[in-house]
Simulated scan of single mutants.
Amino acid sequence: MSQWSKLAPAMSMVSSTVAVSLALSSPLQAASFTIDNITGTWFNLQGTSVFNGVGTDQVRWGDPATLSGQSGLNFQTTSSLGLISSGSNFVLGELTHLNFPVWGGTAASGVDLLLSMAIDGVDYDFNYTFTIDETPNVAGLCPDFQISTTPCDDKIDFTSPFSTTTFVKNGFQYTLELLGFSRTIDGFAPVSSFITEEYQASSAFLVARVTKDPNSIPEPNSLLGMLLLALASAGIKRRGFH
């Protein structure tokens, strides 16, 4: 029997194995990822020397004009999401703006958020900038964005574009998309800013999604691994060749 005759069944099995592997990893097939160690940390607070909470997930600013305390921002993360399927929206955390009167000259004008997480054990960081518009609480001097009847609403703008990052799993390329803030956890009620009445709070969820590159193909190393696995399964031994 020729070497080819001996190898033909095994190579046929290799081809079938690779084909099945590729089919199972096709763009239509959802993959799962472990996302955990999610943290949000405020830093680079600007415009005031009266503040606290920098380096934590709750930052406060201003000299309080009432017993209600300072204004501020909270970012409460979902500490561990467990397994997430590609193509599905999920929540990384909730942003809350607390609006209380502070004395003029002590309000903040901007702050940054460092968002960190691990995807399948690999750490990723994202930075975001928020603009803070603290207004004078005087009737008749409220800004154009005023929506309540209480003088005067304050505004938080999400001024940074929402980032993406790419990574490879099982030889295929995936993208983590931060879709932005939404009033609902499904991500279908997006907001680009908060306009918050005095003595009130506004909240929104930071929504993300992992998607597979539809044009992605396995890396050569991944294909080689499939071939070697198939060859081993077929029982092909080097000593069997003559």
Results as ranks from 00 to 15, higher is better:
110 G>E: 10
5 S>N: 09
8 A>W: 03
229 L>Y: 13
111 V>D: 09
217 I>H: 13
180 G>L: 02
69 G>H: 06
19 A>N: 14
204 A>T: 03
104 G>D: 02
156 I>A: 00
184 T>P: 09
80 S>D: 11
103 W>N: 12
74 N>L: 12
131 T>P: 00
187 G>V: 13
118 A>P: 01
49 S>V: 05
150 T>A: 10
139 A>D: 13
82 G>E: 05
151 P>Y: 10
150 T>W: 03
206 L>A: 01
58 Q>C: 11
120 D>V: 11
239 R>Q: 15
40 G>R: 02
44 N>C: 00
120 D>Y: 13
28 L>F: 08
87 G>K: 02
36 D>T: 12
216 S>N: 06
76 Q>L: 15
239 R>W: 14
230 A>G: 11
14 V>P: 04
220 P>F: 04
157 D>A: 11
190 P>H: 04
106 T>Q: 01
53 G>K: 08
196 T>W: 09
3 Q>K: 07
135 T>G: 01
81 L>S: 02
98 L>Y: 13
190 P>G: 06
126 F>V: 00
217 I>K: 13
216 S>G: 07
103 W>F: 14
138 V>P: 00
215 N>M: 12
74 N>M: 12
59 V>S: 04
7 L>I: 06
103 W>I: 14
182 S>P: 00
17 T>H: 15
81 L>E: 02
220 P>M: 06
34 T>V: 15
101 P>W: 04
101 P>I: 02
106 T>H: 00
121 G>P: 07
68 S>T: 09
104 G>W: 03
206 L>D: 01
1 M>T: 14
239 R>S: 15
143 P>K: 03
14 V>Q: 04
187 G>D: 08
190 P>R: 03
94 E>Q: 15
203 S>D: 08
235 G>E: 05
151 P>W: 07
181 F>E: 00
